[in-house]
Design a protein around this nucleic acid. Structure first.
Lengths: 187, 187
DNA sequence: ATCATTTCTTGACTTTGGTCAATGAAATTC
DNA sequence: GAATTTCATTGACCAAAGTCAAGAAATGAT
């Protein structure tokens, strides 16, 4: 729980009062491996802070699993699009390892926004940050070849990614498992 | 100017008082064709609302122009990454037609955020919306082939895009002009 | 430990988009 | 409106990733 506060402090420190109100909205949950946090078709009405575990974010296209993101301890895991719009998720969010998370629901967060200008601002910072993250990823797609993308991915999170099956990494990189295997072979 | 207020009303209506404070920060500017709003290396410390004109957002990679975005009337044009982080832009923002825009600078906007909770919230909505836009574009890159992406692009903005040179559209789609030409030929 | 399942690798071949080059069309400039 | 530059098209060829298929390696279950 304290790690959440520490994370927020990177953006904007909350007073004890604000934090008390905020933290009382979090609900702790635990998951085993290969469980679903969200299934396609469901709306994602929460944001969850990952204390332990690894998640993958994927959807099905013509029977094929397309991995869009991974989430690690210290990240927030959510379908932010579904969270913001209320529309059903097209994605599945699945645990790749046993996990502990802290959930906050949309309604509760909106009430917090109403009550505390500082938390409203924190919400802006978080949205801005998520923008930067996804914009950076798009850039990497526009500009780098699969080999560079693979390198960059490994640089970021090599420890945790070593436990992730290679075909999921391939999908995340937008290539086929065979191609990723060949990229690694010629190194 | 009224179109800006109308645009904001889509997110959150401002009171006359809030709007007066807000609108007094906008500065009107006009540009001819092929002028630069931002050059690579400069920091982009403003957001501009486009009343008239079309902009392209691109950068140079090994001498080649890579187009990342187009902006049209009713859009906000900025290098949002540079705006948020204060870091220099890697991108150029160039007019493709004569333009009229209304600029608001980072400092002024931050003061508005401090003064008005509603405008703070508006800032969150705008960040959330930009997130949705770029996330959607990333999705299209991950999942669609160039032909689909071309179709989707044309669906969105066909009128204004007709006046944009094809090689810029090709770059935006992440393909070579020759390939786009061939896609169009086989229709 | 054994068996079954899942994941990874490798090979042969196909497909798609990129490269280079030539030509033609369109738009700008003077 | 003629000349020049920019932009679009087309063809021949190339390179990179995809497809299909077989088998090896790793993982998990009993």
């Amino acid at each position: 729980m304290e790690q959440i506060r520490a994370y927020f402090n990177n953006f904007l420190p909350l007073t004890d009062n604000e934090w008390e109100d905020f933290s009382s909205c979090f609900k702790k949950e635990t998951y085993a491996k290969k469980e679903y946090l969200v299934r396609a078709g469901e709306s994602c009405d929460f944001i969850a802070f990952i204390a332990e575990g690894v998640y993958r974010f994927y959807y099905l296209q013509e029977g094929e699993e397309k991995v869009t993101a991974f989430f690690f301890p210290g990240d927030f895991v959510t379908n932010y699009r579904s969270f913001l719009t209320g529309k059903p998720s097209e994605h599945f969010i699945e645990t790749l390892k046993p996990s502990v998370i802290y959930k906050i629901h949309r309604q509760d967060l909106n009430l917090l926004y109403d009550r505390h200008k500082n938390i409203e601002r924190l919400g802006r910072y978080i949205a801005e940050n998520l923008y930067l993250t996804v914009a950076k990823r798009l850039d990497s797609f526009l500009h780098d070849n699969p080999e560079n993308r693979n390198q960059e991915l490994l640089n970021r999170n090599s420890k945790l990614l070593q436990e992730v099956p290679q075909y999921m990494l391939a999908s995340y990189l937008g290539i086929k498992p065979e191609t990723l295997s060949r990229i690694r072979a010629r190194k």
